[in-house]
Design a protein around this nucleic acid. Structure first.
Lengths: 231, 231
DNA sequence: AAGTGTGAACAAGTTCACAGCC
DNA sequence: GGCTGTGAACTTGTTCACACTT
């Protein structure tokens, strides 16, 4: 949301040696790639051989120039006069985004929300394996959720050090959010998806995303209010 | 995410008549206001009388200049040499964001996710009233969730026309997402929070936000991959 | 002395437009 | 002829820095 006071390399312009990727690619570009990938995966499933930046843009509501520029940060994947090979580009994006590996995920906080997250069908299909779940409530610990036995959150630190994971999803009550995140980070987790309404802090280098529906609702009501007034 | 081809008025510079707000304020500014508001609500609860842009920025990880500039789109709420009255600024933000009214919300799709949303404690407390829930599954219809009887989705259109609502939250299976959204929009709903992994389309003037955790995970793995490679 | 409000300078991000290739 | 890749032009968003107010 805000660039922290860490100096960044200027972007490397022009052609690069093969199999190399520039050091600094704008985050806003990275955030669009999963969107592109999702569409390409669909086209791939439909056996579409080739697609142009214009067609991609049409479907996604993005300008063709932006798609071409975004992709050009990573290489020259298209063919002039023809477009992009769907299979090739999908493969490249999988490689760029790291979707050609499986990633280990833990979910902490198995209340109603955590349960819904844990059984969200989109994760496993996209290479994210929920390898463990944790809760503090004795009524929940040791029960089975979606084929996994919930463990006590007191075991989290020890478990993580024995069996490292890549991503932590936090759905605990707000008052435990920061502690939970600290435990995760100190035990070596580098990416956290925070479902609590608290803006937790992490040290530099740890990826953090917030999912807070209330903030969305509150920005929508700003616009709703104007619509109402304008009539 | 992308500015559609609708011409915008140039921003009105300088001082404005009182009780007036410029026509065009960047969306990125609107999206930050709920963040500011959340902190101010906390300070208000702590009976903090005054706060400076510097203190706000410190807490939120935003520059003080940005906070001052953002607020200055709406008025001159601060006092030089002193800062902002917490109560006053909180009140102004409530008014700007429309949080001084209650908003009617329906949830469509009462599976595991919909259920978690419907019982999310943050909504009611912030002025969002879930006035109805809908599902297509006969095993779910007519059951009670969080004090509300689930109605059949076939009644959605008629219900909306009889009792208009402000916001629709969509948590149906992906294949029904677009139809559900169309029903909502045609029945006069102007804001939609979409939890399905499908990028639904709405006509101009309808506010739409997507919550898709997979896209977040996929942008985080990009960064995770680099961390792993760098060691 | 402290801290706002805001033009002006700067930085980041997007779109244009066209050379080059298929 | 059609479409990519990419510098350059442009637009949008952020930060600076200081006149002004309390």
């Amino acid at each position: 949301m805000v660039s922290l006071p860490s100096e960044r390399e200027p972007p490397i312009a022009g052609r690069r040696p093969p199999n190399t990727v520039p050091i600094d690619i704008p985050d806003v570009v990275i955030d669009r790639l999963p969107l592109y990938y999702r569409l390409l995966a669909r086209l791939e499933a439909e056996n579409r051989p080739v697609v142009s930046s214009h067609e991609l843009g049409e479907e996604l509501g993005v300008t063709p120039a932006q798609i071409r520029k975004d992709l050009s940060y990573f290489g020259r994947f298209g063919k002039q006069g023809r477009g992009y090979s769907v299979a090739r580009l999908a493969e490249e994006l999988r490689s760029i985004l790291g979707l050609d590996t499986r990633w280990k995920v833990v979910v902490i906080g198995i209340g109603r929300l955590g349960r819904a997250i844990a059984s969200y069908p989109g994760f496993e299909g996209q290479g994210f394996d929920i390898v463990a779940m944790y809760d503090a409530n004795p009524a929940v610990v040791s029960t089975e959720v979606d084929g996994t036995i919930v463990r006590h959150v007191d075991q989290l630190d020890e478990d993580l050090r024995r069996h490292p994971v890549d991503i932590g999803i936090v759905a605990v009550p707000a008052e435990f959010a920061q502690d939970t995140v600290d435990t995760l980070v100190q035990a070596g987790v580098h990416a956290i998806l925070n479902y609590t309404p608290l803006r937790v802090q992490v040290r530099d280098g740890v990826e953090l995303r917030h999912i807070n529906p209330v903030l969305f609702l509150q920005s929508m009501t700003y616009h709703l209010k104007r619509v109402k007034n304008d009539r």
